[in-house]
Amino acid sequence: MTVETIKRPSGLTALANPTRFLALVRVLLPIFTAIALVLLAVGLWMGFSVPDDYQQGRTVRIMFIHVPSVWMAMGAYMTMVSGALGVLVWRHPLADVAARAAAPIGAAFTFLGLATGSIWGRPMWGTWWVWDARLTSFLVLLIIYLGLIALWNSIEEPAKSSRMAAIAILIGALNIPIIRFSVEWFTTLHQGPSVVRAGGPSMAPEFLHPLLIMGLAFLFIFLALHLMAMRNEIMRRQIRTLQRKAAQSNRTGASRAEIAQ
């Protein structure tokens, strides 16, 4: 291969270089933060301006934060699935970073989905919790997130930990369609889909629009948090590499001193 035939890396390959990726983070982070803040302001204003729902009354406003939290909980998991495929199929250096960084954020949004759902359920269903298929499978998602975080932290060797976590993520992904279709497969107290469904959303536009705006706001909050968490994870790896280098040079120095004696 001649020098002329060597191509500069492009696309995802170029981002394998941490310096390039961190430069991209510096550009994207303020943009995502600004978009999230604007969408959040518009979404909150729209959400608190809607009339009361004929069934839910004023508690319909809880939907504007509950549904986006649930979307982000599942979206974060799908980000981890892409990361897992990146580790196992393409062996992209950033894939494990992306998956690992998404886990605590996904766990937080899953907790928010459960908490806001429970707060809405008390006045509307008369109970904080029922063991129906939707709620239970969503609780399982939180347990999967916590298990994956524990798995990453319990295996010291990086390559082994990323492979093991990638396999566990793909196994855990079976729960995502169960969450999605649980309200169709089983009889649940939780209502059926009203936004993403065959035949289009069944929700009135005056409630649908603030919900979609809040959904976009939560998406940009997730993207900004994920970029920041990925930057932290890259730095953690850089620190570990330098500490190993330091330990190695200390050992080499010590053995040279022993030989000299």
Binding site: P104, I105, A108, L112, T116, I119, R122, I221, L225
Partner: peptide
């Protein structure tokens, strides 16, 4: 009558998102 439920829901979301932001900033 639902004031407490609405405020609690928005309160927990605000708290958790601010906690996530604090966590990424302090770690950084």
């Amino acid at each position: 009558e639902y004031f407490g439920f609405i405020v609690s829901a928005y309160g927990v979301v605000t708290f958790v998102i601010l906690a996530l932001l604090a966590w990424v900033h302090l770690t950084y």
